[in-house]
């Protein structure tokens, strides 16, 4: 309610496409309301650019309520602008009241080899889908499910599974990681499925295929720096990575996935 207006200097990464080098361009934007979300501020800039006949800034967005995982911008050196927010947030839920008049804001895309830039702030995150496709599921065909109460699940494990399952797949963990590892993303899925009885039969094979794909796609290893968990909008805990490590080491002593690559 205590709306105030500010003028900002935006330093935005502009890159026409993957093949062309990008650079920072500077824009002045006045009349930004503190009640706006960060993406609404960019909308406002784009409206001004369009009227002037300039190319608007490309950025990904969709639900704008922090759940779809589509948006993702590095703001002042931190994914989702977590450095400017007191609470965990996606870019769309970051509001301009976290900034003040006269601020200079640096706006960049996720940077990681497995996430090539498409245009400006838009990157290609299909690598995450490939990781899930390689094993991030429970194999149950439609109609083949037993009655829902066939397995009881301890509430503690169900809650831990849920905490991990809240991952929105935005890729902030990769963007923040000094190594550009996708470990927190993989760990969230591993932990989610490892906590449930339904996830047990495929557990050793799942971790092998998912980690194998993760590495193959060019994501690097985890250094336990903790940047990923610090920027995660859903606060997926770092300890899921320990769960992943534990499962992977245990799987090395399991025969699953020994015979063929396509098992």
């Amino acid at each position: 309610m205590s709306e105030n207006l500010m003028s900002l200097t935006l330093r935005i990464w502009r890159q026409p496409n993957a093949a062309t080098a990008g650079k920072i361009s500077e824009y002045k934007l006045a009349g930004v309301s503190s009640d706006m979300s960060f993406l609404e501020m960019l909308d406002m800039l784009n409206e001004e650019l369009t009227v002037k006949g300039e190319e608007p800034v490309a950025f990904d967005y969709d639900c704008r309520e922090g759940i779809c995982g589509m948006c993702g911008i590095v703001i002042n050196g931190v994914p989702h602008g977590r450095g400017n927010s007191a609470v965990a947030t996606t870019t769309c839920q970051l509001h301009m009241r976290n900034f003040k008049d006269g601020d200079v804001i640096t706006i960049e895309p996720w940077r990681a080899t497995p996430f090539p830039i498409i245009k400006d702030l838009v990157v290609d995150r299909r690598a995450f889908d490939k990781i899930i496709a390689s094993g991030g599921y429970i194999s149950v065909n439609t109609g083949a499910a037993p009655e829902a109460h066939a397995n009881a699940v301890s509430k503690l494990k169900a809650d831990r599974a849920f905490d991990a399952a809240t991952c929105v797949g935005c890729g902030a963990c990769v963007a923040a990681c000094p190594n550009h590892s996708g470990m927190l993303f993989v760990a969230a899925k591993i932990t989610h499925l490892a906590m449930l009885p339904q996830g047990q039969p495929e557990r050793p094979l799942r971790i092998k295929t998912m980690i194998g794909t993760h590495d193959e796609l060019g994501f690097a290893g985890c250094q336990n720096a903790g940047e990923c968990a610090a920027v995660c909008p859903k606060e997926i805990p770092l300890d899921t990575i320990a769960q992943l490590n534990r499962d992977l080491i245990a799987s090395l002593f399991n025969r699953a996935g020994k015979s063929t690559a396509a098992e």
Binding site: T209, G212, H214, D215, G221, L252, T260, A261
Partner: peptide, 13 residues
Amino acid sequence: LTPHQRAFRSTVA
């Protein structure tokens, strides 16, 4: 490589 071999060569291993 088999999944098992990939796991042995993985960053985690």
